[in-house]
Design a protein around this nucleic acid. Structure first.
Length: 743
DNA sequence: GGAGAGGGCGTTTTT
DNA sequence: CGCCCTCTCC
């Protein structure tokens, strides 16, 4: 089958797709046919007699690479088999496993997911007797966070604490110690976390040039998607793999970099030309996804960024409605309004072409209730992962012990099912077992009659190492009684979930690979029944996807942008790019919902919410604004009457400190986004100056009164003109001094 | 050292 | 509210 590249691709896409050798960087704006370009390049390579075996396609999710390889097969008219595709992590795993001896893991290796890391750190913390009696001691999740950040950003623990958690600086020595113990424990137990995969692969390639060269010969064609989200070690891996020929195609969009928290450095994409000499640069700038009104809005979002994005996206889809901004009374009514917007959109698009996006997983809960009530099917991406559910981890612990007897985390879990056995005893039993201390093991067996049968069962599982389906089946039967005892409320549902596992396992030849894939494949198991369903997704999980109708919810301060990001300028920048990614997912329709109040679990009450700066700054020229009425309807805001979507008359300010408050000039639709220097960012906290002067010394730590929040206690002064005040029922607020009366 | 009861406290994002 | 940590009693 001949492929008509001239017809199928525009000139820039074609240049990328037909590129044969040498380094090339493809800057692909949102919706510019990036996937299509990669797909056609794959097809072109194979058509010009490059063996699929010689192609390595590294992507951000496994789903993305599968889809690209599949589509390339469709273009070619025959399946493209033999090409290697996957994430950096899954590629690293397969290389390390193939070279386990050289990598220093002759006994094999077990992958840890995030909760395993936290469990291990919790263990170590308890074992080292750290943090007892100290309520503010960093929790295991925090410890895991700091350690993985330190590795991904390749900064010291102190550096991370200094930058993003200075309140934990007193614990620096402890965290360093825990990080070291964590490293040793993993090593001793044949465990690897996500970060280890990348660093161990790098080490392997550096220490064994023959393996590196073998990989280079195997993969003369390397392609890396989402290059803006690679971190330092990933970029070094690309260089190690590319070798002197530097035959790499990197594809990405600096404006869509949203993984800095995971160590992604935009510098990788910006410095690609320095790392690979004579790199060709190709820009894809025509947007094929969105209508012009949607692009107008996304261009405003991007124009507000401090960093200069030299982009000029254009589209030929000139028609279409302007995006809507809808102010609802609360997050509860937001869910109801979202459902009615969905119902309306559903008259124009199939359900699976409609998505609701949000900043964090929990934000969809009220909507999920509303959708269920309305009888609308939905599918959620980016929530609790299938393999992290407790019952799944339970059953997998048996299999982990079949593959790796040194895995103490698995021992803890499995032995913990025995009545009267907790963490300490589990440790003792496992240690005795591994040390071959039959005497003390016999004592344990006497004390816990269920121990011996359990060990017998585990032995049986070990013999099934290369029959994972049979092993899983056995483990399930053995575990079934515990399932009922452990989860009396919902064990039938969990049992059904476990059934899905047995459908997955049939694709594997060894327990080890089965376990690794569950860890590496973030996707939940597919639920076929809800194929035509509305998609609910975090913005991060929505990366690379598109829908005809997109609804963004919870566009208020502390939610989107997230509370944690509002302290620092560069985090706010990433939130902005996230907002950009979210809005650019929409093809035909975009609705932004701003709840006027949100439920605060902490106080168990609803509190007023401030509209997200990303919405406040949008001029009326790019969106139509609506307000929810008390009777539940929507009223189009009249230009003259519109008081601004959320007035700041109460003086309530978000804790954002803007270095140089400058007003941005009015935006003209269609204008080319300009650099930050020319267009200063919108001022978030544009409040009138204090109207009266007050003696701050006297007011410190006293009581004050605010006309909305009532009486509160001043806990800090924020120079030059604000207080941090704790209002009962509302929590901590930053308030301009002029708006509170001292008591 | 385990099991169960009571209290503080805080929600990003993912391989 | 729910998780996690601590305390108490066995």
């Amino acid at each position: 089958m001949t492929i008509d590249f001239d017809r199928e691709l525009n000139p820039a896409q074609r240049e990328a797709a037909l590129h044969m050798g040498g380094p090339v960087l493809v800057i692909a704006g949102a919706g510019s046919g990036k996937t299509r370009t990669i797909v056609y390049r794959l097809a072109h390579l194979v058509q010009t007699h490059v063996s699929p075996e010689n192609i390595l396609l590294l992507t951000f999710t496994r789903r993305a690479s599968q889809e690209m390889l599949h589509r390339a097969g469709v273009v070619l008219g025959r399946p493209l088999t033999g090409a290697s595709g996957g994430t950096f992590h899954s590629f690293a795993y397969s290389v390390l496993r193939r070279n386990a001896v050289e990598a220093g893991y002759p006994q094999g290796l077990t992958l840890m997911d995030r909760s395993d890391s936290e469990d291990l750190l919790g263990e170590l913390k308890a074992h080292l007797d750290l943090g007892r009696g100290d309520r503010s001691y960093p929790k295991r999740a925090t410890l895991a966070d700091i350690i993985t950040k330190s590795r991904n950003k390749e900064l010291s623990i102190g550096g991370i604490l200094d930058r993003e958690a200075y309140h934990l600086l007193p614990y620096q020595a402890d965290v360093e110690r825990l990080a070291e113990e964590y490293r040793k424990a993993k090593r001793a137990q044949g465990l690897m976390d996500y970060d280890d995969l990348l660093f161990e692969l790098e080490r392997l390639l550096l220490e064994h040039p023959e393996i590196r060269d073998q990989l280079r010969r195997r993969y003369p064609f390397v392609m890396v998607d989402e290059y803006q989200d690679t971190n330092l070690v990933q970029a070094r891996l690309v260089r190690l793999l590319a070798g002197d020929s530097g035959n790499v195609m990197a594809v990405g969009d600096d404006a869509q970099s949203i993984y800095a928290f995971r160590g992604a450095v935009v510098a990788n994409i910006l410095e690609f030309p320095q790392h690979f000499q004579n790199a060709k640069l190709i820009r894809l700038e025509q947007n094929y996804r969105s209508t012009q009104p949607i692009l107008d809005l996304t261009n405003v979002v991007l124009a507000g960024a401090q960093m200069k994005f030299d982009k000029h996206l254009f589209t030929e889809r000139t028609g279409g409605a302007r995006p809507r901004i809808i102010q609802t009374l609360s997050d509860q009514s937001q869910a109801v309004q979202a459902v009615s917007i969905i119902t309306d959109m559903a008259s124009r698009h199939p359900l699976h072409e409609i998505a609701v996006l949000f900043r964090a997983g929990y934000q969809s809960y009220p909507l999920e209730v509303a959708l269920t009530r309305a009888g609308l099917p939905y599918r959620k991406y980016g929530g609790v992962r299938f393999h992290e559910a407790a019952h799944v981890k339970d059953i997998l612990a048996y299999l982990r012990l079949a593959a790796n007897p040194a895995d103490m985390l698995a021992w803890q879990r499995v032995l913990g099912f025995l009545k009267g056995v907790g963490g300490k005893t589990a440790n003792k039993i496992a240690t005795a077992l591994l040390a071959g201390d039959t005497a003390s093991l016999d004592k344990h067996k006497k004390r816990f009659p269920d121990l011996n049968p359990l060990l017998g069962e585990l032995d049986a599982l070990r013999r099934l190492n290369h029959a994972p389906a049979a092993a899983l089946d056995r483990a399930m039967s053995f575990y079934a009684p515990s399932l009922v005892t452990l989860y009396p409320d919902d064990y039938p549902k969990r049992q059904a979930g476990l059934e899905q596992l047995s459908q997955i396992v049939v694709n594997y030849k060894s327990i080890e690979d089965f376990l690794a894939d569950l860890c590496l494949d973030g996707t939940q198991t597919e639920d076929d029944r809800t194929e035509n369903a509305i998609v609910l997704s975090t913005v991060h999980s929505a990366k690379g996807l598109e829908w005809r109708g997109v609804i963004l919810i919870d566009l208020v301060e502390d939610r989107f942008p997230s509370k944690k990001a509002m302290q620092r300028q560069e985090d706010m920048e990433e939130e902005r790019r996230l907002m950009y990614v979210a809005c650019t997912r929409a093809k035909d329709e975009l609705a932004l919902i701003v709840p006027g109040s949100v439920f605060n679990r902490f106080n168990n009450c609803r509190e007023p919410a401030v509209t997200s700066p990303f919405v406040t700054e949008l001029p009326d020229t790019v969106a139509d604004r609506y307000t929810e009425t008390y009777t539940g309807g929507l009223r189009r805001n009249d230009e003259k009457l519109r008081p601004g979507i959320m007035t700041r008359d109460d003086g309530y300010l978000a804790p954002v400190i803007c270095p140089e408050p400058v007003r941005r000039p009015a935006y003209e639709p269609g204008a080319r986004p300009v650099s930050a220097a020319a267009a200063p960012r919108a001022q978030y906290d544009a409040a009138p100056p204090p109207k009266s002067s007050m003696d701050s010394a006297q007011s410190k730590f006293g009581l004050c009164e605010h006309k909305i929040f009532g009486q509160g206690k001043i806990v800090a002064e924020i120079p030059p003109d604000k207080y941090r005040v704790n209002f009962p029922g509302f929590g901590l607020k930053v308030i301009v001094k002029a708006y509170v009366k001292l008591l």
